[in-house]
Simulated scan of single mutants.
Amino acid sequence: MGKRAIGFQREIVAEAARLICEERLTDYRLAKQKAAERLGLPGRTQMPENARIHEAVIEYQRLFGGSEYAERLQLLRRTAVRAMKLLATFEPRLVGAVASGATTDAHLVRLHGFADKPEMLDIFLEGRKIPYETGERRYRYPDGRIEEIPTCEFMAGDVGIEMAMFPPEELRRPPLSPHDGQPMKRLDLAAAELLAEQPIDLAV
């Protein structure tokens, strides 16, 4: 890759991170496309990897998010811990932006849960009179599989919680992260509790 192409990619990374943080985008592919358009780059410009965008979002928030970002991230992580305790029967794992810190106001808490039948979560929430909405989320696996995994989304105060329900045998076979193509990092309750108590590192 030539110096010019490297420079283009660096500009796209910075602008995409800004768009995600300031315009509440959560789709990295869309953020990269919009960044290239706003920078006036050719349509054939090679796009940077999502992992670079992910790291740039964290750095942008550390630099410019300030106390608002730190307080929101702490709220998301502590809410995640409370939700994981409530949903302990499903062996929940914390995943995604709340775990990594690449969050904006548009992000919700994402959990992976495990049960023989996904509707067991529906029954659990209905039994506690917790309103929820069902959906699906697409996941890719190292063996090339693409699976549509059922989800339930509900609110905990002003924080959205989405739990994707996997079969029990998938507990130790995580799908691939859309950010770096590696198996997703899943935090159990103990790891999530430790994370929730850590101070948020901001640039000074």
Rank of each mutant, 00 (worst) to 15 (best):
P199L: 07
Q61D: 01
M47G: 04
R4K: 13
P142N: 07
I149K: 04
A191H: 05
L125V: 10
G40C: 01
L25N: 02
L87A: 12
P92C: 10
A192N: 04
E133C: 06
M163A: 03
R62K: 15
T151D: 00
L75I: 09
M155N: 09
R137Q: 14
R93T: 00
I58K: 15
R82V: 09
I149E: 00
A106V: 02
I123L: 14
A191P: 02
E170M: 14
E59S: 09
F166C: 07
F90M: 09
A51W: 14
V13K: 03
A192W: 02
L63N: 11
Y69T: 01
L176A: 13
A14Y: 01
F90K: 04
L195S: 06
A35V: 01
A102N: 07
A36L: 11
R72V: 08
P150R: 00
E71I: 08
Y60A: 06
Y139L: 02
Q46L: 13
P118Q: 06
R44C: 03
R173V: 10
L87V: 09
D180C: 05
H179E: 15
P199E: 08
P150T: 02
R145M: 08
D188R: 10
D188N: 15
R145V: 01
A191E: 15
R110S: 13
E23C: 06
K85F: 05
A102D: 12
R172F: 12
R24I: 00
P183R: 11
T89W: 13
E169L: 06
S177K: 08
R145G: 07
I12Q: 07
H179S: 14
I123C: 08
R128N: 09
P175H: 04
I20L: 04
A16I: 05
A106P: 02
I58M: 12
R138S: 14
T134V: 12
Q46H: 12
C152K: 09
V81Y: 06
A80Y: 09
L176Q: 13
T134A: 10
L111P: 05
R93N: 06
P92D: 07
P178F: 09
R138I: 11
K117E: 13
L41W: 01
G160D: 03
E68I: 11
A192P: 03
K34L: 15
